[in-house]
Amino acid sequence: MQDKEVLIEIKDLCKSYDDHLVLDHINTTIHKGEVIAIVGPSGCGKSTFLRSMNLLEKPESGAIIFEGTDLLDKKTNINQVRQKIGMVFQQFNLFPNMTVRENIMLAPMKLKGMGKAEASKRAEELLSRVGLLDKAEAYPGNLSGGQKQRIAIARTMAMNPDVILFDEPTSALDPEMVGEVLEIMKELAKEGMTMIVVTHEMGFAKDVATRVLFIDEKNIKEDSEPKEFFENPKNPRLQEFLSKVR
């Protein structure tokens, strides 16, 4: 893994809401092609950590260096950087007033100046990859949760990001729909997409992730490969956590 290119480097990241500290000097490095699962008890700050990486949450101090540029540097154009950092939300956040096709075409057309025909073709490619080409003209309101999340992934993919952040992508889904979304994510991982996934799906962490982070009490408490993480946890809080979720 060490020979791989560094994609994101996080140094002494601190974040607090008012006076309440949520993240306390977090340090970690993410390489290209890694699939990182972030787990931890609810309220531990794992979502805040993920959302800090594209500055949806603004950290107080530290550095987030993405492909050589520090996102917290005032000179950095965050909008440019965000085009390369995809994000998938728990609540999907598809645009309800647009068709599925339009949802996917919007960003490439407006931000990359892609022509309509090309963007439409690209949308169709992505839709067939997530198996929903027949829903191109549907509106999000008429889709199931699982379908919505697959479209949301396609929408993010349309910008050709270098990394995709997943914020509990399956938590809002009915159990029978979790599988279809994880399947798409598994395929993405296979193709070498760098992914950072906050999840409660231990199965996904075990089978798909290349590295698992355990966040608790404002910091990363365990950072290891899945086999080691699940079979030989060192942190006592992680041991307790795993005993509860298994």
Partner: peptide, 21 residues
Amino acid sequence: EIGQFEAGRSLGFTYGQTMIY
């Protein structure tokens, strides 16, 4: 919903573009 706004911003739209589009 605030999520609509976050979805726009996370795709790389500026505040103004997110508002308009």
